[in-house]
Each structure stands twice: as structure tokens, then as C-alpha cells.
Nucleic acid binder design. Structure first.
Length: 491
DNA sequence: AATGCGCGCAACCGCCTGCGG
DNA sequence: TCCGCAGGCGGTTGCGCGCAT
């Protein structure tokens, strides 16, 4: 019983409250009215020296009015004073919560937009259950709202046997995992990396927090997925937390083999500043879709991974389009089937084995990492260590091979824009790792990002408007399930 | 029509952290 | 350095509503 016994409010306060209550909105009372009335009566009955029991449960309109008026007059903070000053029978915590979650201005009500949903997924991949931090990237949304959304959605998807993350995010996680195999000494997400670039909206605290909190086991290391979304409609540049795989590891092969499927447009290294306004996600054309979500054309796709250490790919959608657009035939096929990748994969001769491998990939994402080799230093703070033993004890090498094969299958299917030789060449060359076997990473805070950052382009696809709904829930149904259907175990 | 069930949401609870005395 | 307080955060719970049976 945390609610403390408080002295009865001063008469003046009680009068003030009553006055406010008298003028408070009359609507939406329903049961609350009865509840409030009953409590008022109880308060009066217990007025004689009796301690005042702070109220719990739903807030009434009158209480809201009292709180709003108090905040207007005194500003936020000092929440425990609210009860003393207004006679409101609520503890400070409750007041603060009510204000931040429901009463403060500029709150965005209603269901999440598809863009927001995708952002949340990406933020969660990046930050984990850091709801407050996530909320800071979603203007008008509260941590509680995001938390509720994520929890219910996760529960639903898990029950349905669907992956929690969209395919592109999942693959990012897989990439990240692979990179952990490749080089434990190369943190996937160094605070400096994020902090050092204003490209990222995620601040250093985000990165550091993510790196130091909870990314040590089941959750892959933080991915730098959020920044793009706060880039608004501006060109997006991501300094990926995910390093590119070294060729010394089999994990790097898929990239090398499928280099031609990656595009690495090079453009100015201008770094957009972190926006402060609402999140606007620039639309990407349907042909770029991964076929994920109800609208195969306007959903997320697996982002191209640019390993180029020197070239910082800044990809406005206008730049991205010609570089990433699949062939006309492919686009036409996608338009016909309504799903690009799903169709491509479905037609793949090895779809059955792919299905199994996707499941393993899914499982691999959940792998509990082993302690890294001794000589690789301790980076527990960086978290995200991923070990090579799958949940079912599958040997690391075998799992690697499977996922490698998976990448061989999925990447061509995902990126039919294979006919882009120039970027491929860029990638092939830029993918050439440093000979330490690790992807270029910041070794110091001062390091120039332009020389070391792994750059990911993660164009965010708009969901075509409209609020979120079951239909909009990516990969639950619709075109996404075409992808899901062929990947069976995952979805 | 009644009932059960699941879902979404609001609110609470406990823990942690920062700060000032 | 210790202690108390205020605030913040994440996890959990309870309730109301809608839907299926």
C-alpha cells in the first residue's frame, strides 16, 4: 500500500476543488461520476481528523480540470505539491502520470500510423524496452502508449507464431548477429558512433544506454534504425550500428556473393540535423517494397547495406529510386502479384529449405550469446554478443552455413535490382574489409565518420496513410503473409 | 440474449537515480 | 558519506468494451 495517508486538505483547497469540479466538463462521466460522488461522500464522512486516503483508479473530468489548472498556474514538476495545493486526492506520481500521459498539450491520440508502427519496431530493435527513449522519438506519443502497443502487439504476434520484427528489421538483426561472430572486438554499436554524428537522431545517451542496458543476451545489439525516421522527409543517412561482415567469415560471403544486389549511391556527406518536428517518413515507391505489410508496395524492405567505409551513402528517396529500382519486369511482376519478395521467394526452387532456414534465422536471433573469447576484450556494456549455438543447440558452424545459404537465397530475391553493376562494383571494392578482419568501426571518438562508419541506407516506406489497424499490422496478413507463408516457421 | 474471452488501455507498483541537506 | 525526497522508468494489473460462440 504505497498510498500514504495524507492530512485532510485545507478548506480553501477543498473549496477551490469544488469550484473547479462544479465548472468541470459535464461529459464523459458515466460510472466515474458515481465513483467520484461516492468518494466525495466518503471524504466528507471521514473529515473528522480522519486521514485522507488518496484516491486510486480512473481520473474524473473534474480531477483533470484541477490538475490542468494547477499545472497552468505552477508549471510541471513538484507533483507532490499538487495534492497539498489543490486538495486533489491523488499522489504526486499519479498526477505526473496523468499529466504526461493524458493531459499535457500536443499529445497525439488515436492509433499509431503505419509509419509510427514501423518506427516503433525499429526503435525497439535499437533500444529494447526503453519506452521513454522511444517516446522521445515519437512526438506526441507517450512511453505508456508505446509500451502498451508493443506489448499487445508482441503478444499477439507471438501467439500467432509470427516474428516480432518486420523482415527488414529481422534481417538487420541477423546482420548484426553475424557481425558479432565476425569480430567481437568490433562493437556493433558504439556510443561514439551514434554520438559522433548528427546524422543520427538517436543521441549518445540512447546509444550508450542501449549498449549498456539489456543487449547482452537475447536481444541483438542495437541497430541504428531510428535516426532515419526522425530525419523527416529529408535524405536519410544512417550510420549503421551493424558493421559489415568480414570476408574471413562465412558470414561475409552472402554479401560478397550478392554484392551486385546492393546499391551504394554516393552522394554528398551532408548530414541532416536532427529534426525536432513530427516524424515524417519519406515515401518510397512500391517497387522498393519488400512485400511486407498489407500494401506490398509501400512497406519496408530490407535495406541495402553499404559497407563502404569511405562512401557515405545519403539516399534521398529520389536518389534511391533509380539506384534501387528493380527491373521493369520485376516491378511489373510485383505489381501483378502484389508482393515483390514474397513472390520471388515463393517461386524460388528452394523455398522449402528456405522456409526451414528462415526459422533457424529466427531462432538464431534469439540465441543466447556465449562469453566472447578472452582475447576479444570485454564489451559486455556493448551487449549484443551473439554466440554460435542456436537455441536448440545447433552447432555454430552449421547454423552459419544455413544462414549463409539463406542469405544467398533471400538477398537475390529481395533485391532483384541486380542490374546495377556500378553500385555493385562500389560495394565489391568498398566491401573489402580492413585486414584486421573487422568492419571499419570507430576506434576513437575523434575518428572521422566518413572514413569509418558503416553506412546503412534504410529508407522508410510509408504505409499509404490511414491509421493502424489489424489490416495494417505488418506481416499479420495481407501481402506480408505471402512472405510469411513461404517462410512458414517464422511467420 | 447470455456468456466467455481476448484486447486495448489506463493506472498502479516497485525499483532506480539524481539531488540537496 | 549518508539519508530522505522527488521524479522517472519499466513491468504488471485491473477494468471496460467488443466480438464470437
Amino acid at each position: 500500500m504505497e498510498e500514504m495517508i495524507k492530512p485532510a486538505p485545507a478548506p480553501a483547497s477543498s473549496e477551490e476543488e469544488k469550484e473547479v469540479m462544479a465548472t468541470a466538463a459535464t461529459g464523459e462521466r458515466r460510472h466515474e461520476e458515481a465513483t467520484a460522488g461516492r468518494e466525495e461522500q466518503e471524504e466528507e464522512e471521514g473529515e473528522e481528523e480522519a486521514p485522507v486516503v488518496l484516491k486510486k483508479g480512473p481520473w474524473t473530468t473534474a480531477e483533470d480540470a484541477v490538475l490542468v489548472q494547477h499545472v497552468r498556474q505552477n508549471g510541471e514538476g513538484n507533483w507532490n505539491a499538487v495534492q497539498r495545493m489543490t486538495g486533489l486526492l491523488r499522489c504526486g506520481k499519479s498526477c505526473r502520470l496523468r499529466w504526461t500521459n493524458h493531459l499535457r498539450p500536443n499529445l497525439k491520440k488515436g492509433s499509431f500510423s503505419p509509419d509510427e508502427e514501423l518506427l516503433i519496431a525499429q526503435l525497439h530493435a535499437q533500444l529494447g524496452n526503453k519506452w521513454a527513449r522511444m517516446a522521445s522519438h515519437l512526438p506526441g506519443r507517450t512511453d505508456n502508449e508505446i509500451k502498451n502497443y508493443w506489448n499487445t502487439r508482441t503478444k499477439r504476434r507471438q501467439r500467432a507464431g509470427l516474428p516480432v520484427y518486420p523482415p527488414d528489421v529481422q534481417l538487420h538483426l541477423a546482420f548484426a548477429k553475424r557481425c558479432r561472430y565476425d569480430d567481437f572486438s568490433s562493437p556493433l554499436s558504439s556510443p561514439q558512433q551514434s554520438a559522433g554524428s548528427n546524422v543520427l537522431s538517436m543521441d549518445a545517451a540512447d546509444a550508450a544506454g542501449a549498449a549498456s542496458s539489456g543487449y547482452t543476451s537475447a536481444r541483438p545489439p542495437p541497430l541504428d534504425l531510428a535516426g532515419q525516421l526522425t530525419m523527416g522527409s529529408r535524405p536519410v543517412q544512417l550510420l549503421a550500428a551493424t558493421p559489415f561482415s568480414a570476408p574471413s567469415s562465412p558470414w561475409g560471403k552472402p554479401f560478397a556473393r550478392n554484392a551486385q544486389f546492393f546499391q551504394f549511391p554516393h552522394s554528398s556527406p551532408v548530414s541532416p540535423t536532427t529534426p525536432t518536428g513530427p516524424v515524417h517518413v519519406h515515401p518510397v515507391t512500391p517497387e522498393l517494397s519488400l512485400g511486407y505489410g498489407p500494401h506490398a508496395g509501400d512497406r519496408a524492405r530490407l535495406p541495402p547495406v553499404s559497407p563502404s567505409p569511405g562512401a557515405r551513402a545519403e539516399l534521398p528517396s529520389s536518389q534511391l529510386r533509380p539506384a534501387m529500382a528493380p527491373t521493369t519486369a520485376t516491378a511489373a511482376a510485383a505489381a501483378t502479384t502484389g508482393v515483390l519478395v514474397g513472390g520471388a521467394l515463393q517461386d524460388h526452387p528452394n523455398a522449402a529449405s528456405l522456409e526451414a532456414m528462415l526459422q533457424e534465422l529466427h531462432d538464431a536471433i534469439k540465441i543466447e550469446p556465449p562469453a566472447p573469447p578472452e582475447n576479444r576484450g570485454t564489451e559486455e556494456g556493448g551487449g549484443g554478443d551473439l554466440r554460435g549455438v542456436s537455441g536448440d543447440g545447433k552447432p555454430e558452424v552449421e547454423l552459419k552455413d544455413d544462414i549463409e545459404t539463406l542469405f544467398d537465397l533471400i538477398i537475390p530475391a529481395t533485391f532483384p535490382a541486380a542490374a546495377a553493376p556500378e553500385p555493385a562494383a562500389a560495394m565489391a571494392s568498398s566491401a573489402a574489409p580492413n585486414h584486421s578482419g573487422s568492419v571499419s568501426q570507430h576506434s576513437s571518438e575523434d575518428q572521422d565518420h566518413s572514413n569509418a562508419d558503416v553506412v546503412l541506407d534504410l529508407p522508410i516506406l510509408t504505409g499509404g496513410g490511414g491509421g493502424s489497424s489489424e489490416q495494417d499490422d505488418w506481416s499479420l496478413d495481407g501481402a506480408a503473409c505471402q512472405w510469411n507463408n513461404i517462410s512458414g516457421g517464422i511467420c
